[in-house]
Write a protein that binds this DNA or RNA. Structure first.
Lengths: 245, 245
DNA sequence: GACGATTTTCGACGATCCGTCGATAATTGC
DNA sequence: GCAATTATCGACGGATCGTCGAAAATCGTC
């Protein structure tokens, strides 16, 4: 039993190590630059061993995505504990997303690469289910906050809008903005005045103001909310972000 | 001279044919399913000939992106001829983007592949420059419309917002929303009530309302504007879109 | 039309990568 | 201590990428 557990620990540790090295390769040279042969060589394991962890290259990338998504899910879950009006709680989710993207920009990029890779047929079913489940967890929480806002009378959805639609729109802004990080050539000659994180925060805020979601960005000090969220929920991460720049 | 031109025409025609077949392969089997060997075989040219058109596989994909992006630029340019208040003209750009995304859904995929897979080193410099130039053309036009709105008094930019920032936010929504098309697994169990194009249009409109950009979505019949843009500027494309579904 | 020069086309070739599989080494159960 | 099971290894087949020298076609000139 004890030996078995040690062996299992070894395997877990090795898998984490493989994923670390693989992630670096993915970041440096993109999906095509990530090679099972080179991964085996770099980690000094054989290909056969690597393939016992990941059945295909796509499955390896899916495992990277699972790591990424589980970490983000954890941050979102912590953000949910923030107390306040629905729009403040939504703001807290945004802060969690900011923390995630700034502490793990490579995770964010890897996620983009993964979503574009056609891995639906090649990655293991279990991992794909897990990915979808975690995605829907995060999406569901955002939707619930929207619904709470409607229930509280802070927000009124008109026309074709549904809670799911609004949640999708918020995610679209987040994804689209962070994609700018990867954008090799900037859209405008002089770089953006706002950082991607600020741009995302401001864009979502403007859109939610367009919905009339109370309290509006103009009638509430959300900078103070951000500081409260950071200090009360993400103190360690906040320190690390500020250390890095 | 005449022979030379004929030869050049042959080459042009062949390149277009190669790109057509390559585009089909890319759409059917994804980036990894697009193979230079199979392209050569399918077109009944040799690999050497294919490689005289495209120096690498990534360059081939970049050429596909150039085709699409030039088409999009053309649609944007036509949308610019629409007459009206700045926000209507911005809306016309949105309609152009909708036309483009529905007639060329594979564009976003090709562009994402190029931007994410570190292809910038592998595609030809000239093609990369062209891509960037066309991008900036479109971005510049959007920025100019924003500036026109500010000048006309229809829009007031507060806080950290600049015309470039607002333009970036609009593009972020567009890209992020269309990325949902690629997303293999939907975020919510019941598919989105809105189509991606509608979601994008509504999201941008809500955000611009948040900015207080007159005339607001609620105080103007933008559905009528959309019909006017479609009928006056994109009649043929509009027919094709409606034929397809 | 003939013939050498230049360009174009071709496909075989080396290198790389993916995923497999039988052989070998390590671990477990008894 | 020994057999059975499991883990590890790396050579192998199939496929792909990009190259390169040979063959074919085209061009320029007489």
């Amino acid at each position: 039993m004890s030996t078995l557990t040690r062996k299992q620990r070894e395997i877990r540790q090795r898998e984490a190590y493989l994923l670390d090295v693989a992630r670096k390769m993915l970041m440096e040279h993109g999906f095509s630059g990530l090679s099972m042969d080179r991964l085996a060589e770099a980690t000094e394991y054989s290909k056969g061993t690597v393939y016992q962890h990941f059945s295909t290259k796509e499955d390896l990338v899916a495992a990277l995505a699972v790591q990424s998504i589980e970490y983000r899910r954890e941050l979102f879950e912590r953000a949910l504990t923030f107390d306040g009006r629905p729009r403040e709680r939504m703001f807290a989710i945004g802060v969690a997303d900011e923390v995630f993207s700034r502490l793990h920009p490579q995770y964010y990029k890897a996620e983009m690469v993964i979503r574009l890779a056609n891995l639906q047929d090649r990655a293991d079913v279990q991992r794909r289910k897990l990915l979808q489940q975690r995605d829907r967890d995060c999406g569901g929480w955002v939707r619930e906050i929207v619904q709470a806002a409607v229930a509280a009378g802070d927000l009124e959805l008109r026309g074709p809008w549904t809670p799911e639609g609004l949640a999708s729109a918020i995610f679209a802004i987040a994804v689209g903005t962070h994609l700018g990080l990867i954008h090799c050539e900037p859209l405008f000659e002089d770089g953006p005045a706002l950082s991607p994180s600020s741009l995302k925060r401001e864009s979502v805020s403007m859109m939610l103001d367009g919905f009339g979601w109370r309290p509006l960005y103009t009638e509430w000090d959300y900078d103070a909310t951000r500081v409260r969220v950071m200090e009360s929920i993400f103190p360690d991460e906040w320190d690390r972000i500020q250390d890095e720049g």
